[in-house]
C-alpha cells in the first residue's frame, strides 16, 4: 500500500538512537508503513539532520552517549515545534517526565510493540497538522461539544462542575497524547498547584465515575503509571 503514495508526500521521520539494531528495525517498520526515514547515531548529528531535513516527526532515544535527551529537546524546542516521541526504557519514569515536561509530545517504552509505536506516531502527526480544534470531539460513547460546553455519554447529557469540565477540555485538546501530572495540574489549577497530585487523583476518579462505561475498568482515561494520564481515542461503538 505504501508504494501507491508518492515519495514526496510521505512524512519524513528522523530516528535518533545509538543502537544500530534498533535503527535498522525502526527503519524497516516505518518504511513498511508509509514513512521515509533518516537516522542519526548521535545527538549532535540528530540536531543537524533535524535542521537540514525538517522531518515531520522525530523518534528520540533518551540514553544517547553524547547528549542527555532533555538537552536535545531543549535545543530543538528553541526553533521548532516538530513532534518528538521519546524511546525510553522501563523504570525510568523520572526521565520520561523530564522529557515530556521539556517539550516531548509522547513516549514509547522499550521493548515496544510496533503497532503501539505506529499509533503514537499517527496521533502526534495529527496533532501537529491540526490547525484548529474541531468543535465536537468523539471518542467511544463520549461526545464533547467544545463550542456549547455540552458533554454527552452514550447519548445522555452529563453535568460537570467547572473544574471537571476544564480537566476534560484539556484531555480533549490533547486526545491520544500523554499528559504529565505537572502539565495537567498547571493547566487546570494553576502553576502553584503543580505538586498537588491528590487534586488530580480525586478529580480523575470523578471524571471516570461520570464518563466511563465501567469506572473500574477505564477505557478512555488511561493511567500512565508514574507519568500521567492519556485520553485514548476509541473508535465509536457500532
Amino acid at each position: 500500500m505504501s508504494d501507491s503514495v508518492p515519495s514526496a508526500a510521505k512524512p519524513l521521520v528522523l530516528v535518533i538512537d545509538d543502537e544500530p539494531q534498533i535503527r535498522r528495525l525502526l527503519t524497516l517498520t516505518l518504511e513498511a508503513n508509509g514513512y521515509r526515514v533518516v537516522t542519526a547515531e548521535r545527538g549532535q548529528e540528530g540536531l543537524v539532520l533535524a535542521a537540514q531535513q525538517t522531518p515531520a516527526l522525530i523518534l528520540l532515544d533518551l540514553g544517547l552517549p553524547d547528549l542527555p535527551g532533555t538537552e536535545i529537546l531543549r535545543r530543538l524546542r528553541e526553533w521548532t515545534a516538530v513532534p518528538v516521541i521519546i524511546l525510553s526504557v522501563l523504570d525510568d519514569e523520572t526521565g520520561k517526565i523530564a522529557a515530556l515536561d521539556a517539550g516531548a509530545d509522547d513516549y514509547v517504552t522499550k521493548p515496544f510493540n510496533s503497532g503501539e509505536l505506529l499509533a503514537r506516531i499517527r496521533v502526534a502527526l495529527r496533532h501537529a497538522e491540526k490547525k484548529s480544534e474541531p468543535p465536537v470531539f468523539h471518542t467511544g460513547h463520549l461526545v464533547v461539544d467544545l463550542a456549547s460546553r455540552r458533554v454527552t455519554s452514550g447519548g445522555q447529557e452529563v453535568s460537570l462542575t467547572a473544574t471537571e469540565y476544564n480537566l476534560l477540555r484539556l484531555f480533549v485538546r490533547h486526545a491520544g497524547k500523554v499528559l504529565t501530572h505537572r502539565q495537567i495540574l498547571r493547566e487546570v489549577w494553576g502553576p502553584n498547584a503543580e505538586t498537588q497530585t491528590h487534586y488530580l487523583r480525586v478529580y480523575l476518579a470523578r471524571l471516570r465515575e461520570k464518563l466511563e462505561r465501567d469506572p473500574s475498568q477505564p477505557e478512555l482515561f488511561v493511567t500512565e503509571a508514574g507519568v500521567g494520564y492519556r485520553l485514548v481515542p476509541v473508535p465509536e461503538p457500532v
Binding site: 543502537e19 539494531q21 534498533i22 513498511a32 526504557v89 522501563l90 521493548p111 515496544f112 510496533s114
Partner: peptide, 22 residues
C-alpha cells in the same frame, strides 16, 4: 547492564511484532 540486556530484548519484541504485522 540494564541497557545491555534490554536493547536486544527490545529488538526481538519489535521484530516479532513487525513480523506478525507485516
Amino acid at each position: 547492564i540494564s541497557h545491555e540486556l534490554r536493547t536486544p530484548l527490545a529488538a526481538i519484541t519489535s521484530a516479532t511484532s513487525g513480523l506478525r504485522q507485516a
